[in-house]
């Protein structure tokens, strides 16, 4: 196995009773890559992501994250990854600073590290004035950027983003993607699920899941060429129409 691969999956499968949510998927993600994980609702992308995050045990198949086995070493995986969901997962009744202190705390960071990192992030996001503001009263776009900063607060090698831009306007989405690029430039591997096809174009490589299987996996430009389409949207529709599963 090459050191370059930070996530590997081989025939990864998850069954719930008779229902196969994830059906023998195989892929690798490289260090520093922005990996788009696409699929319609119910295609199985959330289930696949939960297995990689150590939230759910696979039924069969192999997978490693940051070099650790998802069956046996999920405690080690948890220390090496960051996670952000579409709900942003900040505590609304805590201030910006308190949220950072809390997340730093649960990742075993020292007081000194937390202090320096908090100052750095606030400075970087131009949020110094809002340090003691309750998250509740911040605009959605700020919350989202803050949530991303919190997800990589402990400087993980990999960050999983589960539909991170849901409900946000295009300008803010664009700014958010700039943050993702910055993270990737620093060597953080980004594993992102999304519904927005324009975002798919921003990814280095994209996989498209249909009915629990990966139907396509390549760079956006290669995919467009293969399917003779002008946009990722067309590629996605072509593949997603094959779906037989009813939306969950």
């Amino acid at each position: 196995m090459s050191n370059d691969k930070v996530i590997t999956a081989t025939n990864l499968t998850k069954k719930f009773g008779d229902f196969t949510a994830v059906d023998h998927i195989s892929f690798d993600v490289h260090k520093g890559e922005i990996f788009g994980f696409l699929g319609a609702n119910g295609a199985g992308k959330t289930t696949a992501m939960r297995m990689l995050c150590g939230l759910s045990l696979p039924t069969s198949g192999e997978a490693t994250v940051a070099g650790f086995d998802v069956y046996k070493e999920n405690e080690k995986i948890k220390k090496s990854i960051g996670y952000m969901s579409q709900k942003f997962s900040l505590y609304e009744d805590l201030t910006v600073k308190e949220n950072m202190e809390f997340y730093g705390g649960i990742y075993h960071m020292t007081d000194k590290f937390i202090k320096e990192k908090t100052a750095f992030i606030l400075d970087h996001l131009h949020l110094q004035k809002e340090a003691n503001t309750l998250v509740r009263s911040l605009p959605l776009g700020w919350k989202q950027k803050l949530a991303f900063s919190v997800a990589i607060f402990h400087e993980p090698g990999i960050v999983f983003l589960d539909e991170p831009t849901g409900g946000v306007d295009p300008v803010t989405r664009r700014e958010f993607w700039n943050m993702i690029y910055e993270g990737a430039d620093k060597g953080i591997t980004v594993f992102v699920t999304t519904h927005y096809m324009d975002e798919a174009e921003y990814c280095n490589r994209v996989s498209i899941m249909v009915d629990g299987r990966i139907e396509a996996l390549d760079t956006p430009s290669q995919l467009k060429q293969t399917y003779d389409a002008s946009t990722m949207d067309e590629v996605f529709l072509m593949l997603a129409r094959k779906a037989t599963r009813v939306e969950m």
Partner: peptide
């Protein structure tokens, strides 16, 4: 070292969590 490892259940991580819980209670007057 930027990481502090857990020594017992009453470690930093645990206190960070308890502190947060008190904030929740305190803020909801």
């Amino acid at each position: 070292m930027k990481r502090r490892f857990p020594l017992s259940i009453f470690n930093f991580q645990f206190f960070a969590f308890v502190k947060k819980e008190f904030f929740h209670i305190w803020r909801d007057k």
